[in-house]
Amino acid sequence: MGNQENSNSKIEFVVLTVVGVLALLLVGLVLLWRSKRKLFVERLVDSNSGLTVFSNTQIKKATRNFLEKLGEGGFGCVFKGTLPGSSMVAVKMLKDLGQGEKQFRAEVQTIGMLQHINLVRLFGFCAEGSKRLLVYEYMENGSLSSHLFSKSSVKLIWELRYSIALGTARGLAYLHEECKDCIIHCDIKPDNVLLDADLCPKVADFGMAKLLCRDFSRALTTMRGAIGYLAPEWISGLPITHKSDVYIYGMMLLEIISGRRNVEKIKEGKFTYFPIFAAVKVNEGDVMCLTGYRLEGDADVEQLSRACRIACWCIQDAEDHRPMMGHVVRMLEGVMDVEVPPIPRSLLNFVGMEDCTPSTDLYSL
Score class of each variant (00 low, 15 high):
Phe40Cys: 08
Leu26Gly: 11
Asn56Pro: 02
Val27Gln: 07
Ser47Asp: 08
Asn48Trp: 07
Lys60Leu: 12
Asn56Tyr: 13
Val18Pro: 00
Val53Gln: 05
Thr63Asp: 01
Gly20His: 09
Val27His: 06
Trp33Asn: 11
Gln58Trp: 03
Gln58Asp: 08
Leu22Lys: 05
Leu31Lys: 08
Gly50Asn: 03
Val18Phe: 08
Gly50Lys: 05
Leu24Gln: 06
Leu51Trp: 00
Glu42Asp: 14
Thr63Cys: 02
Ala23Cys: 12
Asn56Gly: 04
Lys38Val: 05
Thr57Leu: 12
Phe40Tyr: 06
Thr17Glu: 09
Val30Met: 13
Ala23Leu: 13
Asn48Thr: 14
Leu16Asn: 10
Lys38Ala: 09
Phe54Asn: 00
Lys38Phe: 02
Arg43Gly: 00
Val27Ile: 13
Lys38Glu: 10
Trp33Ile: 15
Arg64Val: 11
Asp46Thr: 02
Arg43Ile: 09
Val41Ser: 05
Arg43Pro: 00
Val19Asp: 05
Arg37Ala: 07
Val27Thr: 14
Val30Ala: 13
Arg64Met: 10
Asn48Met: 05
Trp33Ala: 11
Leu22Gln: 06
Ile59His: 03
Leu22Trp: 03
Asn48Leu: 12
Ser49Val: 02
Leu25Lys: 04
Val53Ser: 01
Leu24Lys: 09
Gly50Cys: 04
Lys61Ser: 09
Asn48Phe: 11
Ser55Pro: 01
Asp46Ser: 05
Leu16Val: 15
Ser49Tyr: 01
Lys36Tyr: 05
Val19Leu: 13
Thr63Gln: 03
Ser55Phe: 04
Lys38Leu: 08
Leu16Gln: 09
Phe66Trp: 02
Thr17Met: 14
